[in-house]
Design a protein around this nucleic acid. Sequence first.
DNA 1: CCGTTTCTTTGATCTAGAGCAAATAATCAG
DNA 2: CTGATTATTTGCTCTAGATCAAAGAAACGG
Lengths: 234, 234
Amino acid sequence: MQKRLSKIDPSLVTNCPLFADMDKQAIADILNKGVAKHFKKGDRFFDQMDEATHFFLMLDGYLEVSKTTEEGAQVIMRHFGVGEIFGVAPAIAQKNYPATARALVDCVVVLWENKYWDHFLVEHPQFIKNAYKSVGERLAQSQERIVEMSTEQVERRVAHAVMRLTHQCGVKTEKGILIDFPVSRQDIAEMTGTTLHTVSRLFSAWSSKGLMQVGRQKIEVLEAHKLALLAQGQ
Amino acid sequence: MQKRLSKIDPSLVTNCPLFADMDKQAIADILNKGVAKHFKKGDRFFDQMDEATHFFLMLDGYLEVSKTTEEGAQVIMRHFGVGEIFGVAPAIAQKNYPATARALVDCVVVLWENKYWDHFLVEHPQFIKNAYKSVGERLAQSQERIVEMSTEQVERRVAHAVMRLTHQCGVKTEKGILIDFPVSRQDIAEMTGTTLHTVSRLFSAWSSKGLMQVGRQKIEVLEAHKLALLAQGQ
DNA sequence: CCGTTTCTTTGATCTAGAGCAAATAATCAG
DNA sequence: CTGATTATTTGCTCTAGATCAAAGAAACGG
């Protein structure tokens, strides 16, 4: 399931915004308090409603965070990539994780016991500030998404979702930008509040316009600019 | 427009969660750093995109926070009542307010210059912790709303919105629970991503079932339990 | 009190997109 | 290699709810 690593190399994280404006000594101290682990594709970091015991930093890989309703519908809240913290329940005084976090590819993360949050608050306030900055960005993004859901129709929302994926998790290829992990039509539907059928139809239309190239769980954006126009409503 | 008050009585805020687990001395010190002001119904506390200069605590009254899209559509993000902090841009390292805050009735607020955030972080960390707890609750509520928008149809969403209003801003009457400020059908539409027409139709149906009593910009819920059932989808 | 403005209601269309169904097409397990 | 499983596409139908239209009802300004 998951393997403990003996040691974390600080050079992996020096460019990460989470450690901005911090000296090497402080970074090393924080990393020493954490534990690095491998998670395989499909593994869960935590489940919705689990008691929150740790917070995490992604060193390598991608994950998705999703919520499931009582009726069983799944909504994908967000994706996280390298250098991002997640599962920060202690930061916002939540006793349980509000969602499920799942590895989309094989991952390496650092995880800390919750108690270190308060510890770092005193010892390394800059770290906490950096972490809250990213919490703030997520709050802002959530609210953007509410506006989107309230005012835009499906085509624009799907265009936005694909753009977000390319920005957060895209890798350049000869032809365009490829999403770096498997994404199904169903996944896109769960990110935008629509159905896989509608997503499939949109992708077919966009592909035939040369805007993107799609395959089974594969999305490659060829003309990002045109996609951006669609996201803005022409 | 707004009038400065000379002094703030600490007894106004001792029951407020923002000052939980704090001694009177600390509370008084924090209040002394702030300025109390009146805002009249309709006044703005700040506008979307304004440079963030202050953060606020509502002492008396209600406000709504809304975002406006490039196309001019308005989305009501949230309401705030007595004892809640708002406009906490410094908390999440945002330079500008992401939305507009408008007084729904005559209000009294305390406002602090942004620099005091960092000051309190050192001097009164418990205050900051309490504030972050409410930021966390807002993040959680935003995500709930995304799930709602993604999976529920209009009737349930409107039922949810009315329930939230009764919880946050309701006052008990002989017959039921009255929303304590004017709310139009258009307002409810902007909280739920629908149109005033659909809201009007729903309200008509619910009124004739005896579930609520409505008037011009007035909502009084008579049978909260039935409304809750509607919100859960029967 | 009266005209104006701002809300609300209700009816009559119209349509984006859900839901259903069934046929491909990839991938996987053995 | 082969059948089973999981994704995807595409056509057809149907409906929730938007949009359009127009008529009441409150509140407001002078």
